[in-house]
Design a binder for these strands. Structure first.
Length: 269
DNA sequence: GCGTGATGTTGAA
DNA sequence: TCAACCTCACGCC
């Protein structure tokens, strides 16, 4: 369930609920049990997100969580313990409880290790200190297609399949355009769009990319919300009519992920 | 009830 | 390029 906006939202929620509180930290499944036992009863300092990585701070120690494709971190009723065999981590202060299942990563790390992980990532459109030029340098130097580059966490940390497909559509850019054929302005437009869209994703808890002109309110079409929870132009709309030109949305696999685009709204140029 | 795919990454071939 | 990992919700019977 995770592109960067989800992780940032969770970090904010964790901080709001737990910062400064002594918490219980449990790993009923056992795979994080030793670390959980060490942390149990200590004060959760704050939580922070870098791209799709979440760092839950306990003074100088951090629980590093990466949800991967299928991991889930969600708030649950206090006291409810369901399916402990898959419950990797449970954090509760008695007033709120959050549980982690199926993560790709759940490790206890030091501040230095956290810094190293963050440094290895590219600029995160959700962070005010993000240096967009670092991403551009890699894009400009690469012959890989822009649709591939947008998934590279060293170029724009936190971007996933939905944002990459949608941002390319909104820019009218064909997914196959090589990075080194993009102009500085074209990259800046993609970046600025991420900077506009992703905070809205954090705020709303869903990805909405459809502009006013194509919105249900203006066009009168029925709202169409995908399982991911938002209204989009191309993601998972293969074969459907393009909201702008009416042509069928195309799909193919690129680097193991499904890529969606509109052949006429996104010309090769 | 069963099979599949999914907002992801890593490591081997 | 592909398989593996980890879980669960959805579609199809």
């Amino acid at each position: 369930m995770p592109e960067g906006h989800v992780i940032h939202r969770l970090a904010d929620e964790l901080t709001a609920a737990f910062a400064g509180h002594a918490v219980r930290v449990l790993s009923p499944q056992g795979r994080f049990a030793a670390a959980a036992e060490m942390l149990d009863g200590s004060v959760l300092t704050s939580a922070e997100a870098w791209g799709k990585h979440l760092f839950i701070g306990f003074d100088e120690r951090f629980v590093h969580v990466h949800l991967g494709l299928i991991g889930k971190l969600r708030w649950v009723p206090v006291g409810a313990l369901t399916s402990p065999e898959t419950l990797r981590l449970l954090i509760t202060d008695g007033a709120s409880a959050i549980e982690l299942r199926g993560p790709q990563t759940c490790d206890l790390i030091t501040a230095e290790e956290r810094d190293a992980l963050a440094t290895a990532l590219g600029p995160d459109p959700l962070r005010p200190d993000a240096d967009e030029g670092r991403g551009w340098a890699r894009v400009h130097a690469s012959g890989r297609p822009i649709a591939d580059l947008l998934m590279d966490q060293r170029i724009a940390a936190g971007v996933g399949n939905i944002y990459r497909c949608e941002v390319l559509f909104r820019a009218g850019l064909h997914p196959d355009v090589p990075g080194n054929q993009l102009s500085r302005e074209q990259w800046r437009e993609l970046w600025d769009d991420l900077v506009a869209l992703m905070p809205a994703g954090v705020r709303d808890g869903r990805i909405d990319t459809v502009r006013e002109a194509e919105s249900p309110e203006v066009t009168g079409r029925p709202p169409r919300v995908d399982r991911h929870g938002g209204e989009v132009y191309v993601y998972r709309r293969a074969g459907d009519d393009c909201l702008v030109c009416g042509r069928g949305i195309a799909v193919r696999t690129l680097a193991g992920r499904k890529l969606y685009w509109c052949e006429s709204c996104q010309p090769r140029r």
